[in-house]
Amino acid sequence: MKKKSILILMLIFIIAVVSACGNKQTSGVKGEANAASKNTAANASDKPSYTFKLTTIVQADHPWVKTAEKFNEELNQRSGGRMKLEIFPASQLGKEADMIQQIGAGVVDFGYITTAYMSTRAKSLNAWFMPMLFPNTEAASKMRGTDSATKMLALLEPQGIIGLDWLQTGNHSILMKSGSMETPEAFAGKKIRAPGGTVINDFYSALKASAAPMPLPEVYPALQTGVVDGVNASVDSAWTEKYYEVAKEFTLLNQFSFNAMVVVSKAKLDKLSPEDQQIVKDASKAAIDWGNKYVLDNEKEVLKKLQDGGVKVYEADNKDAFKSVTDEIWAKYSSDPLIKAFIDDATKK
């Protein structure tokens, strides 16, 4: 019995020692894990935070602004909360010329700037405005990843601006105070508000009409008072800018693609670490993927809203009637190799 008692005591002692060692080892592992977690948090907090600014001319309910809001979400998520975006719609920071000056100087970080304006700074961007190059918005959107469209994004770098992507708003058609525009003859003598640009001016001039460029805030009263007879407009802008209230006949001519060049300040991008530059580029691409899909999905719904608002919609079925005009303009601008390449890329699809 005495020997058994001694053996039992020895066994209890051994178990106690092993258990104590195990607890000590577990405690050490937990301690190391806690320390690693603290180090990770410390490393994250060491990285800089940014509040970027993005500017655009369109109203707050326009798809471009919704896309900017998506960009903000993507930046915040991908950076672990270190990056966020302030959005300035409706030309709050001035006209597009002012916006580009601010972006080039690094005062503003990002812009969704109309390609119509950007073409005044790089003539090859006029490729997007070759008349009737695209039958619909989807066809124009597919050009985004082509070699010619990608090369265009680099054209503004010497001016301190880097192109990141292309954001659609929908092809432009003709919204008139009255009258359909299904034939070239219908344009004679008409004054159409359109973005500035040599191609757009050439098109309307060839149709014996005149293009009247003016800032967006001036378009509604110009339509209302008859200063212009109609407006070069996408389905969405006809709705979000409320042009449908004063112009009631919409011809779906799809005469021009219309989009924004997504740009970033080179000065700001160069200051970011390679890791943060990649976060910005990935977040922008994800937002533009989303935005272009939103435009396509939204177009039919908005067209129905316009019709419900009293707008009469015409399908321009005889686009061959415009062929002599479009062929002449395509040929004129094809002397620019990048425009020629863009037309070739578009007509292969």
Rank of each mutant, 00 (worst) to 15 (best):
T115Y: 03
S265F: 09
K348P: 02
P195L: 00
M118W: 02
L252F: 05
F250P: 00
A41F: 07
I57F: 09
D98N: 14
L253G: 11
K190Q: 12
L125Y: 12
V302P: 00
K151Y: 01
A286I: 00
G80R: 00
E86C: 08
M176K: 03
D98T: 10
E301S: 15
D109K: 00
A154I: 04
V18P: 01
F110D: 02
Q255A: 11
D98A: 12
E157V: 09
G189C: 03
S234I: 06
D344I: 07
Q278A: 13
A20F: 13
L54M: 15
K281R: 15
M99P: 00
K340W: 05
A35E: 14
T67N: 09
T67H: 07
W128Y: 15
M99V: 06
K319V: 04
N72R: 14
T55L: 06
F258D: 13
A283W: 03
P135K: 10
A16N: 14
N201G: 14
P63V: 07
M118G: 03
V17E: 03
P131W: 02
F52C: 08
L253P: 03
S335K: 13
L272Q: 11
A316G: 08
S284N: 15
K304H: 09
P158D: 05
K319H: 05
L54G: 12
Y314D: 11
I343F: 08
S141P: 00
P217W: 07
G31F: 03
G226P: 09
R78Q: 14
A233G: 15
G230C: 02
E182N: 15
N318D: 15
T120M: 06
I329G: 06
K151W: 00
L155D: 10
K300Q: 12
P213H: 02
Q59A: 13
E275S: 13
A116C: 09
E301G: 14
S5E: 11
R78C: 04
G80P: 00
W290A: 05
S148D: 04
L153H: 10
Q255D: 10
V107N: 10
A211I: 07
A154K: 15
S148C: 08
M214H: 12
K30F: 09
F256N: 02
K84G: 10
D344V: 06
D282G: 12
T183F: 01
D308L: 07
S273T: 07
Y243F: 13
A211M: 05
L75A: 03
V231F: 04
C21V: 08
E241I: 02
